[in-house]
C-alpha cells in the first residue's frame, strides 16, 4: 500500500502541515516572538536569564575581522560546538570534541585545521546557513557530555530529545538517534531513528527510520524498546518552562542529557516538524484538542502541567517498537 486515505489519517488524529501552520502555529505563536527562537543567540541569552539549564555560551563572533584572531580563544576550550545563530534544521553546526595537536577533532573523528574552522565561521557570518541568506552571527558553546545511558544507541553525534510543548503542556516526545545513514545528524528525514517516548515514563513506545518501524538500532543492533530516558520529569519540566520563557504556544524543544549536568536545553523551534507523530505511531490532534479545552489558568506552574500530562497521556508499553501502541489499541 503506497498511500493512506485522508479519512484514515484523520481518524488516526494525524496533524497535517496545513493544519499545523494555520490552526496551531498561526494561532498560538505571535509573530513578534519568533526571533526569540529563530535566533539561537537570543534563545541562549533568554535561557540563561530565566535560569534554565543550557550549555554555556563561550563566544560570539559577529564580525568577519574577529575570525582572524579566533584561534587562541578556541585553543582554550576542550570541546565546543559552533553554531549559526539563525540556522535551521541543524545546518551549519560544527561539533569539535577535542584536539589532536594543532588539529581539531570533529564528532565524526575527522580532523580539521583552524583554517577550515575560519572558513566555516566566515560562511556562517555571510549567511550561508541562515534562512534567506541573511548575515548571521556565530555562537560557540560548551560541548555536551553525553550521558552513557545512550551508549550504543547513537552512531555519531548527539541523541537529543524533542518535546512538543503546547500552551506549556508537553504533548509528545521523541528521542532522535543519529545513524550512519543520517551522517551523524539527528534529522529524521535524513535517516536518523526516531523513538517515540511515553509522556508518563520516558520509555520507548515505537521506533521508526525512514518512516518505517524498526526494532533494533540499524548500526549497533541494540534493541530500542529497552530505552528509558532518566530524569524524565525534570526534562518535561524544563520543556514546559520554555512556554513562560518565550510566550510561544506551540513549540518544539530540543533537549539533551548531559552526563553531569542533567537535561540541557539546546534549542527551540517555533515550527516543530510532524514526524514526531510517525515516531510515536499516533497523531497529535486528539491531545492538542484535549489541551485546547482546558481552562486558561487550570495549571499554574510548569510542574502542575507536567503532572497533568504525565497522567493524561500515559500509554501502555508495546511489545515491539516497530509496531507501536496506537496501532495495537486501534
Amino acid at each position: 500500500m503506497k498511500w493512506i486515505s485522508p479519512w484514515r489519517l484523520k481518524k488516526l488524529g494525524i496533524l497535517g502541515m496545513n493544519a499545523r501552520n494555520r490552526d496551531f502555529i498561526g494561532r498560538y505563536n505571535a509573530r513578534h516572538l519568533y526571533p526569540l527562537v529563530d535566533n539561537k543567540l537570543k534563545t541562549k541569552l533568554l535561557t540563561e536569564e530565566y535560569g534554565l539549564a543550557t550549555p554555556a555560551l563561550r563566544l560570539v563572533v559577529s564580525e568577519q575581522h574577529a575570525i582572524s584572531h579566533i584561534e587562541q580563544q578556541l585553543y582554550d576550550l576542550d570541546g565546543f560546538a559552533i553554531k549559526p545563530a539563525k540556522g535551521s534544521g541543524g545546518k551549519g553546526i560544527l561539533v569539535i570534541t577535542g584536539r589532536h595537536g594543532d588539529k581539531f577533532v570533529k564528532s565524526s573523528g575527522a580532523e580539521i585545521g583552524i583554517e577550515e574552522i575560519r572558513r566555516h565561521m566566515s560562511n556562517t557570518l555571510a549567511g550561508l546557513y541562515s534562512l534567506g541568506g541573511k548575515p548571521d552571527v556565530v555562537i560557540v558553546e560548551d560541548l555536551i557530555e553525553f550521558d552513557n545511558i545512550f551508549d550504543g544507541y547513537s552512531h555519531e553525534g548527539v541523541p537529543d530529545i524533542r518535546v512538543v510543548v503546547f500552551k506549556g503542556y508537553p504533548v509528545m516526545a521523541m528521542l532522535r538517534l543519529a545513524t550512519h545513514a543520517s551522517d551523524g545528524k539527528a534529522n529524521l528525514h535524513q535517516g536518523a531513528v526516531g523513538v517515540g517516548l511515553d509522556i508518563a515514563t520516558g520509555r520507548c513506545l515505537k521506533a521508526v527510520q525512514f518512516g518505517l518501524g524498526v526494532t533494533l538500532h540499524p548500526d549497533t543492533k541494540k534493541p530500542l524498546n529497552e530505552i528509558k530516558v532518566p530524569d524524565w520529569r525534570d526534562m518535561l519540566v524544563l520543556a514546559s518552562r520554555c512556554y513562560e520563557m518565550t510566550g510561544l504556544g506551540y513549540i518544539g524543544t530540543d533537549i539533551v542529557l548531559d552526563k553531569s549536568r542533567g537535561p540541557q536545553l539546546l534549542e527551540l523551534n517555533a515550527r516543530p516538524g510532524l514526524s514526531i507523530q510517525v515516531a510515536n505511531g499516533m497523531g497529535l490532534v486528539p491531545r492538542l484538542r484535549q489541551l485546547e479545552k482546558l481552562k486558561p489558568r487550570q495549571h499554574k506552574t510548569p510542574e502542575a502541567r507536567v503532572d497533568y500530562v504525565m497522567k493524561a497521556f500515559a500509554e501502555p508499553l508495546p511489545d515491539d517498537p516497530a509496531i507501536g501502541v496506537a496501532a495495537k489499541t486501534a
Binding site: 484514515r8 489519517l9 497535517g16 496545513n18 518512516g211
Partner: peptide, 19 residues
Amino acid sequence: YTGYKLSELRRFRAMALEQ
C-alpha cells in the same frame, strides 16, 4: 485549507501499514 497534503498521504503511509 487545513486538510492533508497529497504528499502527506504518502508520508504517513507507514501509519496504515503498521495498523
